[in-house]
């Protein structure tokens, strides 16, 4: 699990460039990617909650809320470093051109808890990697997001009577 010290010298030089006051465009792009994942997960968990049994629906709603909180924090950070609010495919709930339409009712085939768990694990992996490539507050924020996704996938959605 723990990595050896060998990579230290390799990575030490490259990551230092990410500390400037004007971060490269790729930093913003990376954060926008994390933002879109947070929104997607929130929507997925919300849709799954709407169709789930009450016992697990509560846990799914918590996941939806937490991923929405991640989206807000990422939006704030992107706005701060880019000087403007992020333009993504689904800016806010009012967007009519979102990639995945947010309808009022659950979709015909609602997502399952397993779908949400799988999405969260992917999001955790992505945020973990991104956290090691960023620095300062951004690294910390992404690390907390990764930790939250893993805890949600392996504890919150597992202790609610789901075995997978």
């Amino acid at each position: 699990m723990l990595v050896g010290a060998a990579a230290l010298a390799l990575l030490g030089g490259t990551v230092a460039t990410a500390c400037g006051s004007t971060p490269p465009v790729k930093d913003v792009d990376a954060l926008v990617g994390a933002l879109e994942r947070a929104r997607d997960d929130s929507r997925l968990a919300g849709n799954a909650a709407a169709a789930a049994a009450p016992t697990i629906a509560t846990a799914l709603s918590v996941v939806a809320d937490q991923r929405a909180a991640h989206a807000r924090a990422l939006t704030d950070e992107i706005t701060r470093i880019a000087g403007e609010a992020p333009t993504t495919s689904a800016s806010t709930s009012a967007s009519s051109t979102s990639a995945t339409p947010t309808t009022s009712g659950p979709p015909p085939k609602p997502p399952t808890v397993a779908d949400v768990v799988a999405a969260l694990k992917q999001s955790a992996d992505g945020a973990s990697l991104l956290a090691t490539q960023q620095s300062g507050y951004r690294a910390g924020l992404l690390g907390s997001i990764a930790a939250a996704c893993t805890a949600a996938a392996t504890v919150a959605l597992a202790t609610s009577g789901v075995t997978s």
Binding site: A7, T14, V15, A131, T132, G143, A147, T150
Partner: peptide, 13 residues
Amino acid sequence: AGDDRELAVTALT
């Protein structure tokens, strides 16, 4: 250093 961040993300998680 990137590998310190890796350690920290692992620990935080």
